[in-house]
């Protein structure tokens, strides 16, 4: 078992004026682990995700990533070009709304190929080949490679966004409510796909969601947030089946049993 954490978060704090976004969050994520972050709206889970992914600058703390070249480095101290390079190569970010993560005016193939071209791919045939391969992996028919995402269903758009993110073989994927806004049957297929991709590529992932069923199926570990603080953390099934904190107990008991 490797002892170097892929991502070490230490004391990450973000305030919006007097309001606390997230406070003093620390954890280690190891290669191949999937961690869920749950909590109600406004609990600070998206703020935390955006602080880790470099979209927001925290007021305090460190986000240390085990980079492929230089080993562990605090991404908050990196220069912007370095951080942006990281977010195109080792990191990926899947937005809740596919529209935020796709170029709607560019074909599916172009969307998938963009990250390859961004890291220097200059052979059209190879780029297109990779794009088609990835469309297949996310179960989008090859025939749609030249269609724009505007002609895709919501589930297909989300799968395209995932393909676009994973094509450069990232090691850490941030996901913000990846199944939100999709109908239930589409969610199931997406969940299964994410699970297989995570397993087959040995990905680590951090998934923010308010859907406990999603974390139950996808996440190895779970953090429960309330009012910007982590109130409970542990193995997903420990936290869900044997919740310790009052808020977690309330959250778990609030789920409708189908």
């Amino acid at each position: 078992m490797t002892d170097t954490a892929l991502l070490s978060v230490r004391g990450v704090t973000k305030r919006y004026g007097a309001h606390i976004g997230c406070a003093d969050v620390s954890f280690d994520l190891y290669p191949g682990e999937v961690m869920g972050i749950v909590g109600e709206s406004g609990s600070g889970k998206s703020t935390l995700l955006n602080c880790m992914a470099g979209h927001l600058e925290p007021d305090a703390g460190a986000v240390v990533f085990d980079t492929a070249v230089d080993g562990p480095r605090d991404t908050l101290l990196m220069s912007e070009p370095e951080r942006r390079m990281l977010s195109r190569t080792d990191w990926a970010f899947v937005h809740q709304h596919a529209r935020d993560g796709l170029r709607m005016g560019v074909s599916a193939g172009g969307n998938v190929g963009e990250r390859l071209m961004a890291v220097g791919a200059r052979h059209y045939g190879d780029i297109r080949g990779s794009a088609i391969d990835w469309l297949g992996r996310v179960e989008i028919n090859e025939a749609r490679v030249d269609d724009r995402p505007t002609t895709f269903s919501g589930g297909m758009q989300q799968r395209l966004q995932i393909a676009r993110n994973l094509v450069t073989g990232p090691r850490l994927v941030f996901m913000d409510e990846p199944t939100g806004g999709l109908d239930v049957s589409v969610q199931a297929r997406l969940l299964d796909m994410i699970r297989s991709l995570v397993r087959d590529m040995g990905l680590s992932a951090i998934i923010v969601t308010h859907d406990l069923a999603v974390v139950r199926l996808l996440a190895d570990r779970l953090m429960v947030m309330k009012s910007g603080h982590v109130v409970e953390a542990g193995l997903t099934d420990q936290v869900l089946d044997d919740p310790k904190h009052a808020y977690t107990q309330l959250l778990v008991s609030s789920i409708l049993q189908v």
């Binding site: 542990g234 193995l235 099934d237 420990q238 089946d241 044997d242 310790k244």
Partner: peptide, 9 residues
């Protein structure tokens, strides 16, 4: 049983 599986702490 659940404690033996690490499910309950």
């Amino acid at each position: 049983m659940r404690m033996l599986y690490g499910n309950y702490r």
